[in-house]
Structure formats: C-alpha cells, structure tokens
C-alpha cells in the first residue's frame, strides 16, 4: 500500500472542512450549526498538526492547542447567546431568527 504522506492528512482535513461548511450553510438548527463550526475548527487543527510533523517543529502543535482553547471559549459564548435568545423567542431555527426587533 502507498505509505501515508502528509497529503493524506490534508485530504481528510479538507473533507472535514467541506462537511462543516455544508453544515453551517444548510442546517436550520442553531446547535447543529455550532457543531459544524467545531468540525471546521477540527479540520484546521488537523492541518496544523500535519504540517507541524512535516516541518519537524512544534509551532503547529502549540497553535493547535490555542485553537482548542479558543473553540472552548467560543462554544461557551455561542451557546450562552443561544440560551438567552431561546428564552425570548422559543425557537432554535436560524430561519426564524431574522428580525432585528420584535
């Protein structure tokens, strides 16, 4: 079998990225949109770590750790916004969150 090169990992990351983009653009449930954003961030992380191994230094891995920290903060804030919104409008459809004032 062909040995596993960096390109293999990049292809997997690209696939995850595209799946995340489809999820963000097409789903109506806000929580699933947020989960697709997490998919995108994971794809970026995988890219970073794959390149870090290719070049042989650890900057990519440290940056990946920072991205994980950032994703945690963003998920917390995003879900907080969702809960605050849900308390007012009782819906979690992105289609129905379309008025600036109600």
């Amino acid at each position: 079998m062909v040995p596993i090169t960096t390109l293999h990992y990049l292809v997997v990351a690209a696939a995850l990225f595209v799946l995340g983009v489809i999820g963000v653009l097409t789903r109506r449930n806000v929580v699933i949109v947020l989960m697709s954003i997490e998919l995108i961030l994971n794809a970026v992380n995988l890219n970073l770590v794959a390149f870090s191994r290719m070049w042989g230094n650890l900057n990519g891995q440290v940056f990946a750790i920072f991205i994980v920290v950032d994703a945690a903060a963003e998920a917390a804030v995003g879900l907080g916004i969702l809960i605050a919104f849900f308390r007012n409008k009782e819906t979690i459809n992105v289609d129905e969150i379309d008025l600036l004032k109600w």
Binding site: N42, N45, V49, Q61, I65, V68, A72, A75
Partner: peptide
Amino acid sequence: APFVAGVQIIVYAGGIMVLF
C-alpha cells in the same frame, strides 16, 4: 502529537461536548 491528542480528548470530547 500525544499532548495535543490528550488536550483534544479532555477539552473537546470531555468538556465542550458535555456543554453541547
């Protein structure tokens, strides 16, 4: 990258997904 893997499991799978 074992450390990044450990951070991924603890923070992402064990923390963020519980939040979700």
